[in-house]
Every structure is written in structure tokens, then in C-alpha cells.
């Protein structure tokens, strides 16, 4: 097990190197001169030269990569081209908002997706199953962008029961400690702010949870069906155990393993989905920030944030793999 853990951890290094090459290379893959894109209609040749020099674009490419990687290793993701602020500090300040949203979404997706999947498998081909499968299919194919707009329109504009965006209402005075607003409000015992924060969280979390929920429900159903057809389930039933005990204690525990992998993989999708969800709901996390930076061609931020997100996804997948081994003692790695 320990050997596996070390081996698995080492595979992360080439992956991250590859990611860094991609992230670094993409600035050179986009057509056009980044300096000119940034300056727009009013660019004079002198300005373009000046900006190119400032971005280091006038050096040979291998040199640029060397400088870049040297900085990244020291934890320096550079400074924003537009605003001049350090990228890493800005990233860390915005990250809690994204974590809060992604956590809410994954909790929602797991809390609803697993029961739906189980019900679907137990009452296979019933009306419950058909509805659940239809819903899962719709959920997987629904563009977040459209869904987010519809949710905001219906609950925010038509019914006016939930806000159309943001983390807190305008003019809410609240000094967060960690930028995890829900955590901070709870720790500070500030209930009005907590309620306000939860109201703002409902729609974006629901939008972001839709796809993972559908995937988890489908995966749970498939995995449950497989386990339910095993012989030890028949044995359990033959022993006269109640259906609840058979399903929950014997079947679900075994069926959950592949689901766990899927949940781990969803983290990457959640972070990608957060870019659209945060933009639609003006949620001040890294997704909205990346979107704005793409628009304003702030390559330093896009590079820094992409690298950061890649590290998170690689890290979560590593943890899932290790967890998998820990949860299921039958799995042996040699």
C-alpha cells in the first residue's frame, strides 16, 4: 500500500510538468500578438514594442519558459498585466468563494444523486426509475449557462424569492475572517448574514450541481444494479434480511466504490463549470475572475489560474485513488 501510494504520487510530477508546458504554451498558440490584443484600436508601434518587452515576449521561447518555471517553483505566479497585482494573492483571496460554491454543489449532488440512483435501481423500470433516468439524461445535456439564466429569471425576476446573483446583498456590512462567508458568519454568530449568504448560495449551487447530480445518479444506479444481481445479495435475501438492510448495508456499500471515483472526477468538472456559473451569478470566485481575465487578455492571470486549477484537479484525483485503496481492503496494488 505504501509503495503504491509513493508510486502513484510520483506520477503527478510528469503530469504537472506537462500542464505547465501547456499553460505556458497557450499564450503563444493564440493567434495574434498578445501585446496588440491588449492595446486594441489605439495601439501605436512604440506601445506594442514596450508592452512586448514588459511581457518578455521579445526573448527566445525556451528562455521564457525557463524564467516562468523558475518563478512558479518559488510560488511566484507573476503579476496581473492589467492591474499589476500579484496573481497568487488574488487567487487565494478569491478561492474560498469558489470552494464554498463547489462544496455546496457537490454536497447537493451527492445528497440527492445517491438516493435517486438507489431508488432507481431498487425499483427498476418503475415510474420512479423512468423519471429519474429522464431527469438524469436532461441534467447531463443541459448547458449550465442556459440553466443558470433560467433559474435566475424564474426565482429572481418572476417570483422574486431569491437574489439573481452575488454572495451578499448590497450594503451588507460584514467583515469576513477567512472569506468563507458561511463559515465566518456561523463562527461570528451573525445569523442575518448567514441567512443572506445561504439565500445567495441556493441558485448558483443548484445550477452547478445539476450535471454532477445526474452523473452520480446514473453511476449509482448502474453500480447498484450490478451489485444487486450478485449471489451474496441473494444469500442475504435468503437469510430473511429486510430489504432495507440488504440494499443499504450489503449492496450500497459495495456499489459506492465506483461512485466515489466519479465524485472525485467531478471536482475538475465543477471547477470548469464554476467559470460559467460564477459569471452568470456574479459570484466573486476564481471562475468569474478567470472569465474577466480572458476577456481583458490578462494572460498572467489566465496562466496562473489554469495552473492552480490543474494542480487542484490532479491533487483531488490523487487523493481519490489513494482513498479508493484505503476504503476497499480487497484491492491490492503490486
Amino acid at each position: 500500500m505504501r509503495r503504491y501510494a509513493i508510486q502513484r504520487s510520483l506520477t503527478v510530477i510528469p503530469v504537472l510538468l506537462g500542464v505547465s508546458v501547456l499553460v505556458f504554451g497557450f499564450i503563444h498558440l493564440i493567434p495574434g500578438d498578445p501585446a496588440l490584443t491588449m492595446l486594441g484600436e489605439r495601439a501605436t508601434p512604440e506601445k506594442v514594442t514596450e508592452v512586448r518587452a514588459r511581457l518578455g515576449l521579445d526573448r527566445p521561447i525556451w528562455q521564457q519558459y525557463g524564467i516562468y518555471i523558475g518563478r512558479v517553483v518559488r510560488g511566484d505566479l507573476g503579476v496581473s498585466i492589467v492591474r499589476g497585482d500579484p496573481v497568487l494573492a488574488d487567487l487565494l483571496r478569491r478561492f474560498p468563494a469558489t470552494v464554498e460554491l463547489a462544496t455546496a454543489a457537490i454536497v447537493l449532488a451527492v445528497a440527492l444523486g445517491i438516493p435517486i440512483g438507489v431508488a432507481s435501481a431498487v425499483w427498476r423500470n418503475s415510474i420512479v426509475d423512468s423519471l429519474a433516468r429522464l431527469w438524469a439524461l436532461t441534467g447531463v445535456s443541459m448547458p449550465i449557462f442556459w440553466l443558470g439564466l433560467m433559474l435566475a429569471w424564474f426565482f429572481g425576476v418572476e417570483l422574486r424569492v431569491l437574489p439573481t446573483g452575488f454572495r451578499l446583498d448590497t450594503g451588507t456590512t460584514f467583515a469576513p475572517w477567512t472569506n468563507f462567508v458561511i463559515l465566518d458568519a456561523t463562527l461570528q454568530g451573525n445569523w442575518p448574514v448567514l441567512a443572506d449568504a445561504l439565500r445567495h448560495l441556493v441558485l448558483p449551487a443548484a445550477a452547478l450541481a445539476t450535471i454532477p447530480l445526474a452523473i452520480i445518479a446514473r453511476m449509482t444506479r448502474a453500480s447498484m444494479l450490478e451489485v444487486l444481481s450478485r449471489e451474496y445479495i441473494r444469500t442475504a435475501e435468503a437469510k430473511g434480511l429486510s430489504q432495507a438492510a440488504v440494499v443499504l448495508r450489503h449492496a450500497l456499500r459495495n456499489a459506492l466504490l465506483p461512485v466515489l471515483t466519479v465524485v472525485g472526477l467531478q471536482v475538475g468538472h465543477l471547477l470548469a463549470g464554476a467559470i460559467l456559473t460564477e459569471t452568470i451569478f456574479s459570484w466573486p470566485g476564481i471562475g468569474l475572475w478567470v472569465y474577466e481575465s480572458i476577456e481583458s487578455r490578462d494572460y498572467a492571470i489566465v496562466q496562473g489560474a489554469s495552473l492552480f486549477i490543474a494542480v487542484i484537479v490532479v491533487g483531488v484525483n490523487l487523493m481519490t485513488d489513494l482513498l479508493y485503496a484505503a476504503v476497499d481492503p480487497r484491492i491490492k496494488y503490486d
Partner: peptide
């Protein structure tokens, strides 16, 4: 007494916020 300039990236969503009175 106060002015708040809110950043709402998406054009449709901004119109939604206006219609919702936010």
C-alpha cells in the same frame, strides 16, 4: 447617500437584476 457600482458580467443577467429591483 451612497452609490454602489455592481459588477455584473452577463448582459441578460444584468437586465434580470434590474427587473428584479436589485
Amino acid at each position: 447617500k451612497r452609490v454602489v457600482v455592481r459588477n455584473i458580467k452577463d448582459n441578460s443577467q444584468r437586465l434580470g437584476a434590474l427587473k428584479a429591483g436589485e
